[in-house]
Design a protein around this nucleic acid. Structure first.
Lengths: 121, 121, 121, 121
DNA sequence: GTGGTCTAGACCACT
DNA sequence: GTGGTCTAGACCACG
């Protein structure tokens, strides 16, 4: 299963988003072991260096822990995961609003349009 | 007035978005002359080459026209502008929804959250 | 009657080609008076400076003559016109052949394709 | 091997034509890796920025693909290449015919003249 | 004065 | 090593 990546966004970033999404969503549970860098790289069809970088950044974000010789694990700090979730939500909304402003749409118009498409989410 | 640019996005892209926003929003009206490449470059605090690139891409997007020795003008094709507006709105919402899904948020949660912050838009 | 110009070719060049075409084709006959710079400029919807340049280059090509206070006239030197005709034909074919080569088409393919469309000329 | 460029046409355009010609002609095959921007720039005797621009426009034309950190590759979409070939052929003939008409030559005359010189193509 | 092209050289991000 | 962006500065053609 080679993942499809958007060509105009760094692969490593897309992978970070995907994994954080999996954690937030519960696909990866607190304390669960992540695939090895090599396995995940092969599975995703990317260079091992790229995957290494992904894991490294995840660790810096404190949402995974690397145990020497054992691999990477999702943090067991549930509060951290919840905080991450909130942070991402806020950042998502913030950038959406920013784009909306930048393009000069009215708030009402956009929210209405979103509501219309709400069922499709 | 030097514009503030986000450090993680190409300047020329931000300028394209800013100008398309100005056109969509009506700050620049159909047929209006845009500032000369050099003037806008000075005004925005960027190099003239960067601005040149911006104008060139705008022309490729068919929302401006360049007349030799006279400058660049917003297209008078208001249908094209309307189409651009719709396209950007859809693309904006689509990518928002995609991110929402990717991070595992529920539709209701996000829309509610947006509503809360609606006044700030 | 404002003439339509291709946006990616100098206007003055297009005007030169148009007038030489008119002379070669006989629309303007040897010795005939051309419109004044001003009149032609208005008629074509271009700047008078541009038209001035066109007339100047036509004179340098020796296919028109400017008589002080009287205007510009097509040369009466029929041989010169004939020579111009031949020269343009050769240059036209030469550049066509060059493009054909550059794009790697075979001679036969192109001539055949031209023949096919011959009736449409 | 520094390439010779015509002085009256932008270098980057000539390079685009050369490379599209190479692709159409099969000198560069579908999926093949093109030289790196810097290598090709040195080889052609132009600035790297100029070459960069060439590659970017090729990508916009959808006949090459750029993979981050890996280089540019000829598209594997052979239909796209075939379409490009046809399009260029038609555009070539069309502009030839247009020039012929503009200069007032008869169709037969030009085709005959081309036939004469056919061996030289 | 206007856009367009080109060079030289630098720095960054990605793989 | 690869593409991508940006700057500074120059020169040209056009209207």
């Amino acid at each position: 299963m080679s993942i499809d990546f958007l060509p105009d966004k760094p692969i490593y970033q897309q992978l970070i988003e995907r994994i954080t999404g999996d954690i937030i969503r519960g696909t990866f549970t607190p304390g669960e072991k992540l695939p090895s860098v090599r396995d995940y790289a092969v599975q995703a069809g990317v260079n091992a260096n790229t995957m290494q970088r992904v894991y490294k950044e995840l660790e810096q974000m404190k949402i995974t822990e690397t145990r020497r010789g054992q691999g990477s694990f999702v943090t067991e700090d549930i509060a951290a995961i919840a905080a991450l979730r909130t942070e991402m939500k806020e950042q998502l909304v913030k950038s959406f609003i920013q784009n909306v402003e930048e393009l000069g749409f009215s708030a009402g118009e956009m929210v209405d349009y979103l509501q219309e498409r709400r069922e499709s989410i």
